[in-house]
Design a protein around this nucleic acid. Structure first.
Lengths: 212, 212
DNA sequence: ATTGTAAAAGAACGATCGTGCTATCTAGCG
DNA sequence: CGCTAGATAGCACGATCGTTCTTTTACAAT
């Protein structure tokens, strides 16, 4: 906005505020996925990026805003790496499969160095009070509703047994995803997500209508 | 040891070092289960207990030792609240059931105010390097081996289908336990552990030999 | 070349961190 | 009683925290 919009041959500036802003958020996501949002420190961030504390601070003007923007940036990564490939699959059971596979792949590829950003946040803020707990709870509720919708659509298409309890199935799909993330991260072994992959495959298989 | 051992009518001391020690560790477990071992602070602990920072510090002489002892104290709670009732059940499938139910009950009853202490530690240290990561990984490995033994014994007794992959079954039992802990804590709703209860029941049901 | 502006650095603040050293209090022993 | 030893408090340290204020830098427009 400040640079090059009206000038097609604008020389690259040594440093554009907006670029620095996203660079900070990228490093913040990295650090927070490993050590948590609570251990995310402005001084640490500055040292890691080779800039001054006040230089970093000026981009957010409070730690709360830094934390909020870091979460928002992580949501965009999640949307790009998990939601988008899932939505590319056709509606119904295969979109459910695609969503689970997209999540497992996102864990397996190490999109965040500390495993799934939101799994970490879930554990960090599940028991606390305050705005960060509420953000995590809202995200969680949103995903649960989304999976619930996917299940209902698949039922309507006759790809899932109509007798199946939606909340229960959503839980049984979510559980292996979450654990695959934690165990593969803990053991530094991306191969462990295959345990989750197999659990998902069998749970989805059981959810199919008896006729099939 | 220092008091009353040889004197049956020892007057109660205003404060016995050993009693204070366990009181500190109890508060430390409470705080750490909610906010994590990383946010556990000696000053905070002292304020919460109405004593001085140096008074608390003197019991451990380093923060590392405080953290180690807090983990050890939590292991004792886990042994008392989960392992002991599980081991009271007869060997085989019913001990597996008892173990899962003991865990879910321990979550449901809110033994720790922040949900399962070790589930919190798993997420806090899964991606870090250092002694605390190694402790968590060792605990994790220990439980996995224990569940593996339980499954093998149940197989030997003919209560579990011999074709079943032990590691896969262990994973599929562990996943609902973990998620039930996180979701019930996040939503402040102990009722959510019933989702885990039902998932466990069905998974165990499927593990039975086909003959049965 | 001068001016304006946004980005970043620098310096300082009060608070809190982990840790060490010293002093005070109290229970039990002679 | 005085003495000893352990538990606790008080105080100070250097480091780091989040935050504010001021200054320097580097580019864009004039």
């Amino acid at each position: 906005m400040r640079n090059g919009i009206n000038n097609p041959r604008a020389a690259p500036r040594r440093s554009d505020g907006a670029e620095t802003h996203v660079a900070i958020l990228e490093k913040a996501m990295e650090l927070a996925s490993v050590e948590g949002l609570g251990s995310l420190t402005i001084g640490r961030l500055a040292r890691e990026l080779g800039m001054s504390k006040s230089g970093v601070f000026a981009h957010f003007r409070s730690k709360q805003r830094l934390q909020r923007e870091t979460i928002e940036a992580a949501r965009r990564v999640f949307a790009r790496e998990v939601m988008r490939p899932a939505l590319a699959a056709p509606e119904g059971l295969s979109r459910i499969e695609a969503f689970c596979e997209a999540y497992l792949s996102y864990v397996e590829r190490g999109v965040f160095p500390g495993g799934c950003f939101f799994a970490h946040m879930l554990a960090e803020f599940d028991a606390r009070e305050g705005p960060l707990h509420d953000e995590v709870a809202a995200d969680q509720r949103g995903w649960a509703e989304m999976v619930g919708r996917l299940i209902r659509v698949a039922k309507k298409k006759g790809e899932i047994d109509p007798e199946i309890d939606e909340a229960q199935l959503a839980f049984e799909l979510y559980a292996p995803l979450e654990l695959a993330n934690y165990l593969s991260t803990l053991n530094r072994d991306p191969g462990m997500v295959d345990l989750g992959r197999r659990a998902i495959r069998e749970t989805i298989g059981r959810a199919r209508p008896a006729s099939s």
